[in-house]
Nucleic acid binder design. Sequence first.
DNA 1: CGCTATTTTGAGCCGCGTCAATACGGGTGG
DNA 2: CCACCCGTATTGACGCGGCTCAAAATAGCG
Lengths: 255, 255
Amino acid sequence: MLFFEARRTRLSGTATPSPLNLYQLRRTCSTCSLSELCLPMGLESGDMQRLEELVALRGPVNEGDHLFRVGDPLRVLYAVRGGFFKSYLVEANGREQVLGFHLPGELIGLDAIWPEQHQCNAVALNTASVCELPYAGLSDLGRQVPGLQHSMLRLLSKELALSHSLAGDYSAEERVAGFLLSLSSRMKARGHSETHLTLAMSRRDIANYLRLATETVSRVFSRFEQDGLVSVDRREVMLRDLEKLGQIGRCFTVG
Amino acid sequence: MLFFEARRTRLSGTATPSPLNLYQLRRTCSTCSLSELCLPMGLESGDMQRLEELVALRGPVNEGDHLFRVGDPLRVLYAVRGGFFKSYLVEANGREQVLGFHLPGELIGLDAIWPEQHQCNAVALNTASVCELPYAGLSDLGRQVPGLQHSMLRLLSKELALSHSLAGDYSAEERVAGFLLSLSSRMKARGHSETHLTLAMSRRDIANYLRLATETVSRVFSRFEQDGLVSVDRREVMLRDLEKLGQIGRCFTVG
DNA sequence: CGCTATTTTGAGCCGCGTCAATACGGGTGG
DNA sequence: CCACCCGTATTGACGCGGCTCAAAATAGCG
């Protein structure tokens, strides 16, 4: 903790943090730019410090590395610190099913709380890092800190609403537009551009997530580009008409 | 409470409870046959009594009555005591979207925890009754009773997993078979026949829930009947080959 | 510079939705 | 008791959106 304190003090004076020292800023919840999106949202600084004592940072997670797999006992929940993750499961027939993409500040593994076993796999889409939150400790602390318990329920409840909105029967265009807008707003909330997206995931993953064929996603991208809604170059996407996209897309954005 | 105590004592000697006194048995969690499925699952009798003090019973809810609507502030969570409910939402385009059906012992309104407003509508499919669980009190009690907090997280987590399994891209037959099996296992867990189902919901509701057209559900029912998998008479459904249904159906059953 | 994975584009087909007609059942009133 | 009505369910015909299969671009990499 002394080390962290020293860091915090030393860095607190920096004006505009560059990506380099962002990781150092994120060594504690108190100094993490994501704290208002993440689990500690709304906690007082005293409570936040108690949470910090639980948190263990986990260094670079390489692309393709798994945080956990189906059936693993629930030891810790993960909060994304940097990078992108996807969660997915493999069905009886062998097909993969992408459940979601996880940006910095988002929690992974919530659906493992029952029955204390992970229900899906989680893999890094690029070089990433995470915070490990021991579930047992979190559960204890939640009992003492009202805000924390509520925060956990809130995050679960939110994820449930998101899942509901994805389950609807929407057309391919509605789905793709909704996906782009969701990503856009989440990136914006994290201080990035809401119009210039760099997709960390492949077309195949997007398609699978949206329950479409890869070809269909590709075609919709092309159509959107023809209509001047977006500019697509490989995994770089520029949203050119948020208004129209919003009219087309189902709102997958929750929060 | 004295009244309840008296009831409990007087009824505890009855051998096979008829539907009539089932409602009386269910006046407290301790004597409710659903307690092992419901929120109090796994609580010690002391903790359960503290939970009982929170619970308010709500008399007959008539078919078509709403427990809550989108936007209502979260005051209480509901546990179904008797009857069937459905939760649904109405989208921008005016179409209805059925989110789920709720059997006795199941909780309704969990997705309202964030942001303390109901995110969907809940309506009784037939004459029903519910327990009202004030969320504030539940939240407080959860902090004192470890098992209760975990129980709430568990139920949310479970619902999330269910929602995930529904979101997959399954064929009409997979969906219908999965739906029947889910209902079957839930009815079995409640002491009813797992082969003889009485559907409380219309074909339209089933279709909407499964993201299919009514006609498609009807056609699949007919096909299943031709193949000897089920016998269908109006809303009475007899499952004749659970084995084959299980091979066809995606497992929507969680718990 | 080839090799491979990913993405894009095209052609054809199929499952499911849409539209329409019919059948069934339950309730109401004569 | 039957005639009538209306909501629900079934069945058929047809069209379309998106999946499948196939092939051609394009990028990444040794």
